[in-house]
Design a protein around this nucleic acid. Structure first.
Length: 271
DNA sequence: AAAGCGCCCTGAAGGC
DNA sequence: TGCCTTCAGGGCGCTT
């Protein structure tokens, strides 16, 4: 479900309700997420105050004193703010109950998500330490992409979805950015010019910023923390549009499989 | 080092 | 209606 814009929209939704709040209780109903949710998490977080809610890549970082709760929504995870008395739905795995009597509730049918308790700065966690630059930061540039791509024979789509290269570019936005930049998703990463990488970096920034501005993309069931959907799906140029006319040239959008992911592109506009 | 898979899960959709 | 297959917005970790 969530790519960077959906995670950022969720962060913006929950942060005002969490920051400065003390945690009254933590309820773990299903510890079998991607990694087991440990008793240390429930024990350690209860009673602490949440100081900040940040995002790195698609991870949400809740800072609580010198510790941190690291959340990842995987493919199907959702966070909702709700009174703790709200009836439970299937797959409501974790509650963080606040003293305000609101509750941050994690629902994740596929359980690819994660809730990790870390005794330190979340950015030093092994899963976060080696991540590439944030796409919306000044450190992410076409020159950076160009430099890292030399000698790479993998398709450019896989290259920009590699979190060591740049974080937060999932399948939807990789397809969209490559369309905006006019680059064929199967082109070898090492055989793209510096100028074209400049356009690609710009396209990634544009598409992610636009999607955040529209509250993310709602395809099936994504909703933000307050239950409202995103609207970026209305702007999609290629993702999920196989057979429909390209918005630029009207040629039918083509669907192929690349790196085991659905890949959409315009055969006329992208080379 | 880079690249390519398998795999962790459930649910929805489509074919028969 | 039901059963089966396929596919899904992620990404770790293993093998080559």
């Amino acid at each position: 479900m969530p790519e960077l814009p959906e995670v950022e929209t969720t962060r913006r939704g929950i942060a005002p309700h969490l920051c400065g709040q003390r945690v009254r209780a933590v309820v773990v109903r299903e510890p079998r997420l991607r990694w087991p949710v440990t008793p240390a998490l429930a024990r350690g977080l209860a009673g602490r105050r949440i100081d900040a809610v940040e995002r790195r890549a698609k991870y949400l970082l809740l800072r609580a004193g010198d510790h941190s709760l690291i959340l990842h929504l995987g493919m199907s995870g959702r966070l909702r703010l709700t009174p703790p008395s709200t009836a439970l739905k299937p797959h409501d795995h974790l509650d963080v109950v606040l003293e305000s009597d609101l509750c941050l509730r994690l629902n994740d049918p596929r359980r690819f998500g994660a809730a990790l308790w870390w005794p330190g700065d979340p950015l030093t966690h092994p899963l976060l330490r080696a991540l590439g630059p944030e796409p919306l930061s000044p450190a992410f540039t076409g020159d950076a992409l160009y430099g890292r791509s030399r000698g790479r024979r993998a398709p450019v789509k896989a290259f920009v979805m590699d979190s060591r290269v740049v974080v937060g570019v999932g399948n939807i936005y990789a397809n969209e950015a490559l369309f905006l930049a006019g680059i064929h998703p199967r082109r070898a990463a090492g055989r793209i010019s510096r100028a074209r990488y400049g356009r690609l970096a710009g396209a990634i920034k544009t598409v992610l910023a636009d999607a955040i501005g529209r509250g993310g993309t709602t395809l099936r069931d994504y909703v933000s923390a307050d239950g409202s959907p995103g609207f970026f799906q209305l702007e999609l140029c290629v993702y999920g549009r196989a057979g429909e006319p390209c918005r630029r040239c009207a040629m039918p959008v083509r669907r192929i499989t690349a790196s085991q992911r659905g890949t959409f592109y315009c055969p006329h506009c992208q080379h």
